[in-house]
Design a protein around this nucleic acid. Structure first.
Lengths: 333, 333
DNA sequence: TTGAAAGCGCTAACAT
DNA sequence: ATGTTAGCGCTTTCAA
């Protein structure tokens, strides 16, 4: 069973001082004689004292914890962000709670609620949908929060936005520059804002090049989760439509398309060029390696952390940060 | 700024009772008249009261939090385990802290220390190396702990072991059953116990079939992290050695090998059959899809959680659980 | 430079 | 069935 932990009281006793003095020594919150300091530090070392973060948090109302809420940690896009965040946070002395919503709206609110009970200092919210209730709650209680890819400005001012329109534009433009004239758009989760924006970018690039937007080669699927399969289906549908390029709004879709093409003997990029979106680890490893739009996780994580720290320090409400995607050219274009 | 949270005191005041009574109502720890109960619940609802988990934890010495320490959350094997664990834990009312060590031994100890400060109820430790100090500490303080793939029995009794020897055996046997006679072994991180065990299984299968173990086609690399590249190198080396099968001790290596074969025009599985290990999400999506040994993350997570709960409940020290890998036959064999 | 005392929000033993 | 009291481990006035 759990051993009784060493407390400041124990340290104080051993050092022959009073407990608040130990606190002062540790926190440097009063001037203490070197003699006492030495005795206290010696006692701490000897007893292997570990401050109790709960007690401290209860008293100071600052727990040095941050919550990460994301749809799915096995999605490598989120995993990368989570890793970077956790890294940065631990350096700053924060612990991080994490939780996956599994794309369920209900659990979003439940998790925010739960984290509030644990007095987290801040929350980084990565929703797939615009879910107002939890954001409203966060704002209402003044919990420092940053959201990813969301437009509910009325609740949370601090957000990290990927410029999805720009990404769609750059991806499509790249295909055009490769001489492609008939470029399909293949989206999953078409209802999601990010996907809509990518589609807007796609249209802008086509228009700019004087190319028509043909609804026959704009494929969208509302299916969640089974994203690879969606791409696979798309691949089958598209071959008959005499296209020479595809912009897939997600790497998983692109990979599905690639797989389908391989099955059908279509040569990539000779017959059809493919651009994905996200730059997940698989993209690089696919055969042929996938050209895609990269969304730099480090930048997102860094921005999110900075925003949170600003809010925690009470230096403002944070602001909107736009992170630009980058084209990574590999072998499918 | 953070708004002052609603406390039991506020609820008590509104309900016209004393604060401990509210506690009793909430926890069902005394018989309370329905009238009072109703008033209390009404007040809770009206004020939107959220219990303070820190205060409760401080008092009860049970925080309902679990720590997950893993090498790297972007590694999909760990991500899957993390997701499953978190899922199961949240259902049981636990929050989960997570932290990546990035394969650094120092941070392992630091993280254990940190989590102890936060009074976690238990820790699931996933190390890559056998690192005694943190385990010793955990044991010394009686913190419920479960380790993954580790043999330091002297410290932590509760562990989840993948039967890597069996996995290596099954993978190799499968290749033999496919008529392969000259099967290479390609390992990364050869110093790690898991990899050694897989190698043992490989040898057992070969011996059983009367096939020689040829050192010339046993490749090992101590490089960490760049695992795909290792596989790629292996692929180049192996082609000249007239092999007809490969057991790669990791999917990433297998994928690297696959990639290298594709570059060299080697047909898989016709020329050379390939079996990987881990069944990472990429395995299914590769072209051709990778035959591999699957390590069921759900089983690992479930076992780990059960072990932790047993220890937390004070019902024992936990035990060793062996999880068997399973062969997943796809297109590379 | 140090000590005494109060209190963060909660639970739990005891009294009523 | 409900109230009183104490205390978890810490920080933070205020005194000395």
């Amino acid at each position: 069973m759990k051993k009784q932990a060493v407390t400041m009281k124990d340290v104080a006793k051993k050092a022959g001082v009073t407990q608040p003095t130990v606190s002062h020594v540790i926190n440097g919150t009063a001037s203490i004689s070197t003699a006492v300091k030495e005795r206290v530090f010696a006692a701490i070392k000897e007893l292997n004292y570990r401050p109790n973060a709960l007690a401290k948090g209860l008293k100071t109302n600052s727990t040095k914890t941050i919550g990460l809420i994301m749809p799915d940690i096995t999605n490598s896009y989120y995993a990368c962000i989570a890793k970077e965040m956790e890294q940065l946070l631990i350096e700053k002395g924060y612990m991080t709670f994490f939780s996956s919503t599994n794309y369920s709206r209900d659990s979003e609110m439940r998790l925010v609620d739960k984290m509030m009970r644990y007095n987290v200092d801040g929350i980084f919210v990565m929703f797939e949908f615009l879910n107002e209730e939890p954001l409203k709650t966060l704002q209402q209680y003044g919990i420092p929060a940053v959201v990813l890819d969301d437009d509910a400005e009325q609740f949370i001012k601090s957000k990290i936005n990927m410029d999805n329109e720009l990404g769609g534009y750059l991806a499509t433009k790249h295909l055009i520059e490769r001489g492609r004239k008939r470029i399909a758009f293949a989206a999953e989760k078409a209802g999601i804002l990010a996907m809509k924006d990518r589609f807007e970018g796609y249209k802008r690039a086509l228009k700019e090049a004087g190319l028509p937007v043909d609804d026959a080669i704009v494929l969208r699927d509302e299916t969640l989760q089974y994203r690879f399969d969606a791409g696979h289906d798309y691949g089958k549908q598209l071959v008959a439509k005499k296209i020479d390029g595809i912009f897939a709004s997600t790497d998983m879709v692109a990979l599905g398309v690639l797989r389908s093409f391989a099955d059908q003997g279509i040569k990539v990029p000779d017959d059809i060029a493919v651009v994905g979106y996200d730059d997940i680890p698989l993209a690089e490893l696919a055969t042929p390696a996938l050209t895609t739009m990269s969304q730099p996780a480090e930048k997102v994580a860094k921005a999110a952390m900075e925003q949170l720290l600003v809010q925690i320090a009470g230096e403002g409400e944070g602001e909107k940060v736009v992170v630009n995607p980058q084209l990574v050219v590999r072998e499918t274009t």
